[in-house]
Amino acid sequence: MNYVYDFASVFRNADTLIDGLSLSLEIAAAANLIAVFGGFVIALLLLSPSRLIRLPATLFVEFFRCTPFLVQIFWFFYCVPMLLDVYLSSRALGILALSLILSTFNAEAFRGAVQAVPRDQIDAGIALGLSPFQRVAHIIFPTALRLVIPVLLTNGILAFQTSSLLSLVAVEELMFSGKMLSAKIYRPIETFTVVALIYLVVSLPVSQWVGWLERRRVRAER
């Protein structure tokens, strides 16, 4: 191995990567915001007592969970404009695709959390004379949300990492900038190492936070 590393030329072009990172963060943040809401709505559909609502919702979620993200993104970018005859910016398409993917994941989390709300909590609500809506708003939702926050955060990191796939459909996010830069300066190893570290630096604090939240919950349950 007599390869001479040259990280300096990567750092000289840091602005390219920073532009990419800011678009990645923007897309991931927007998708997360939409998907917290979207996930909850889909979870309500999944838990609906009516088969007519539950089955299509389940199929929708399962389809997203059982196919590769890359296929979903390609499909979204090539087929949606064709089928619906609408042409959106690649940034908007990216946000939409990622929101959908993340919503299905968050929906599963919300569903599990709502079901994990202890029965006696709900019984206590009934005993206290709360209306069904009040029970959802004051007992089920807050309890479920507390349970689900670590999963939402984990899914959020996953969405941020999945946003890298948008580089393959020419969205100029971090991974795309990395590919461009490595082609420009002929330094793929150095470039991709730096890009990987950027992803890691963004993801790691969040996953550490999740770990902390979970440890705290385990302690509290003892």
């Binding site: 890298s164 393959l168 991974m175 990987a196 992803y199």
Partner: peptide, 8 residues
């Protein structure tokens, strides 16, 4: 686990 599989 902290980096995208694509970049790996």
């Amino acid at each position: 686990r902290g980096t995208p599989v694509l970049i790996q």
